[in-house]
Amino acid sequence: MFAIRATNLKKQYEGRPPVEAVRGLDLAVEVGECFGLLGPNGAGKTTTIEILEGLLTATSGDVEILGLRWGRDDQAIRERIGISLQETKLAEKLTVRETLELFRSFYAQGIEPAAAMQQVSLEEKQNTWVAKLSGGQRQRLAVACALVGDPELLFLDEPTTGLDPQSRRQLWDIIRDFGRQGRTVLLTTHYMDEAERLCNRVAIVNAGQVIALGTPRELIASLGGEQVIEFSLQRTDAHAVPAETFAGLPAVQAARQEAHHYSLSVSEAHVTLPALLATLEAHGLAMANLTTRHASLEDVFVHLTGRHINEEAAS
């Protein structure tokens, strides 16, 4: 049983030239899954999620939500889903409770506003104006507005963007609690750690298409090496040393270079390291630094696209 099914979804925005935001995207999210759409800004994640939420109309393609269809069962779908947009400014001068009472009134069935407040730990703020809430509290309120209709399926568009680490973890807990009730979550994010920790399955989206799909573990395993060795050479040396120099070392699956930084995907770091040091010494090169870590979804993305997912992370 699928909570969400999208087939060959396309969305073209009018303009000169027209912008193809989504180009033939397929998606099948099972009931009870926490599914992540992962990709850089501009990959088409928000367009995709808004089509699934019924807020945008696809140029072509087929969408099924909980076995129902937009255009035919709109009201029925809306009763059963909860959403949080990437950016909504709720009424500043209403309190948390008043906001939830308002949203609760739209649903034929749902949970008590007090219960929604409790789920997102905002009970203490129930009489506080939205204007006085912190960014994390506002985001939790936005999620509470989605929960108050007791949805089977929750859509969250970049739920933790711009939040501090503590607020992000609080939101993760809320999402996990929701998932434990056997309900479905579809979220978009450009945070790798978020997708890795939260999602049962992840679709990596780039330029309006799904370029990889699987559990975070599967995706990372697809790199061949589950560990990464990163090191830098002195700036002056790096011109003379292409990444291929290291590609043949034992246990190395892939080698990449960015200026004087090198990154090797390896299956067994303890095998590669002595050989690496020997090679550098043979060439008379000095290392500026060295780290080893577990491979992440970020590495998957870099491997697939040759780019980093976040501009910030690349610099």
Partner: peptide, 13 residues
């Protein structure tokens, strides 16, 4: 402008 209308559209209101 605040996208509150869009948010409301996503409810059964």
């Amino acid at each position: 402008i605040r996208k509150l209308l869009k948010r409301l559209l996503a409810t059964p209101m």
